[in-house]
Computed example of a mutant assay.
Amino acid sequence: MWKISVKELINEKRKIIEDIYAIDEIELHTGTYKVVNGGFKVKLVLTYADNKILLGGYARGYVERPCDRCLKISEMYIDGIVEAVYTFEKKITHKTEELKDLSNEILITDDIIDLEERIIEGIVSSAPDVFVCSEDCKGLCPYCGADLNEEPDHKCDKMEEKIDPRFEILLKIKHTQEG
């Protein structure tokens, strides 16, 4: 499904692919996560022009991931952008020019283009580094680990125990101001 014949694409000039990229889990830069809802909805447009194949599209879906604040498993939405330029001729660049040229062209060396690598690349590069289950997630108590979403009025007894003696004066000032 995700392998495209180069010859057919050159003859057709343009091809649109819409399908589900069905995988059980995906490895992101923050860990390996379960893919939910059947996979990622993918739409790709391939166009042959100027002796190059241009690829553009998206891969959208959900993975189960723990919230970085409260550690509850939640669904994280990923809206991956899939882009690539495939070329038939390798550009000759000198070492001094390599850093200036960010065209990221992929040399076609076979009669088949495997789009799965580009789909995964789009998903991984679009996944956020930090994920919270909701914008107003309060997280966990840093002293005892209580979920502050479930206990909004939580007062931790262990807070007093872990005060650095050098900061005791600040705690006294705080209590004086609170009344």
Rank of each mutant, 00 (worst) to 15 (best):
I4M: 14
V6C: 04
K7D: 14
K7Y: 09
I10M: 10
N11E: 15
I17D: 11
I17N: 10
D19R: 14
I20P: 09
A22K: 15
A22V: 13
I23F: 07
D24V: 11
E25F: 06
I26S: 05
G31A: 02
G31K: 00
V36S: 09
G39W: 03
K41D: 10
K43L: 11
L44R: 10
V45K: 12
L46H: 04
T47V: 07
A49C: 02
A49H: 11
N51A: 12
K52R: 07
K52C: 05
I53M: 08
L54R: 09
G56V: 08
A59N: 02
R60H: 12
R65P: 05
P66A: 01
D68W: 03
D68S: 07
R69M: 01
L71I: 10
K72V: 08
E75I: 07
I78G: 00
I81R: 12
V82N: 06
T87I: 05
F88C: 00
E89C: 02
E89D: 12
K90N: 10
E97A: 11
E97S: 09
E98L: 14
D101Q: 04
I108R: 08
T109F: 11
D110P: 10
I112E: 13
D114G: 01
L115V: 04
I120P: 03
I120F: 08
G122D: 10
G122P: 08
I123W: 04
V124I: 12
V130Q: 13
V130R: 13
F131D: 00
F131I: 02
D136C: 07
D136G: 07
D136T: 12
C137H: 06
C144F: 03
C144T: 03
C144Q: 05
G145W: 00
A146G: 00
N149K: 04
D157S: 14
I163Q: 07
D164Q: 00
F167T: 05
K172V: 09
T176Q: 13
